[in-house]
Deep mutational scan, measured.
Amino acid sequence: ITIHVNGVTYHFDNPEEAEKFAQKMAKTYQLKMEIHNGEFHME
């Protein structure tokens, strides 16, 4: 699972971890999250 946050790329093997991380980042930084081709993009 690949997550892009403001141009920084994070890779996770565990989908649950990826989702937790994505939600935490979105909440902490008030980010808008989109999913493209199974990759999370946040800005």
Rank of each mutant, 00 (worst) to 15 (best):
Thr2Arg: 13
Thr2Asp: 07
Thr2Cys: 15
Thr2Ser: 08
Thr2Trp: 13
Ile3His: 01
Ile3Trp: 02
Ile3Val: 14
Ile3Glu: 00
His4Thr: 06
His4Phe: 07
Val5Lys: 00
Val5Cys: 12
Val5Ile: 10
Asn6His: 12
Gly7Glu: 05
Gly7Ser: 07
Val8Asn: 10
Val8Met: 10
Val8Asp: 10
Val8Trp: 12
Thr9Gln: 12
Thr9Pro: 13
Tyr10Ser: 00
Tyr10Pro: 00
His11Thr: 08
His11Pro: 01
His11Cys: 15
His11Ser: 08
His11Leu: 07
Phe12Ile: 01
Phe12Glu: 00
Phe12Cys: 06
Asp13Ile: 12
Asp13Ala: 09
Asn14Ser: 09
Pro15Asn: 08
Glu16Asp: 12
Glu17Leu: 10
Glu17Arg: 08
Glu17Pro: 01
Glu17Tyr: 04
Ala18Phe: 07
Ala18Cys: 13
Glu19Met: 14
Lys20Cys: 13
Lys20Val: 08
Lys20Arg: 11
Ala22Val: 13
Gln23Trp: 09
Gln23Ala: 10
Gln23Gly: 02
Lys24Leu: 14
Lys24His: 15
Met25Ile: 07
Met25Pro: 01
Met25Leu: 11
Met25Trp: 07
Met25Asp: 02
Met25Gln: 02
Ala26Thr: 04
Ala26Asn: 07
Ala26Lys: 07
Ala26Ser: 09
Lys27Ile: 14
Lys27Met: 11
Lys27Phe: 11
Lys27Arg: 05
Tyr29Leu: 06
Tyr29Ser: 07
Tyr29His: 14
Tyr29Glu: 15
Tyr29Gly: 13
Tyr29Lys: 01
Tyr29Asp: 15
Gln30Glu: 12
Gln30Gly: 14
Leu31Lys: 02
Lys32Pro: 07
Lys32Ala: 12
Lys32Arg: 03
Met33Leu: 14
Glu34Thr: 13
Glu34Pro: 01
Glu34Met: 09
Ile35Thr: 04
Ile35Leu: 09
Ile35Arg: 01
Ile35Tyr: 12
Ile35Met: 08
His36Asp: 05
His36Glu: 06
Asn37Val: 05
Asn37Thr: 04
Asn37Asp: 09
Gly38His: 06
Glu39Phe: 03
Phe40Thr: 04
Phe40Val: 12
Phe40Leu: 14
Phe40Tyr: 13
Phe40Arg: 02
Phe40Asp: 02
His41Phe: 14
His41Trp: 14
Met42Phe: 12
Met42Ile: 07
Met42Thr: 03
Met42Leu: 12
Met42Lys: 03
Met42Tyr: 08
Glu43Leu: 14
Glu43His: 13
Glu43Ser: 13
Glu43Arg: 12
Glu43Asp: 07
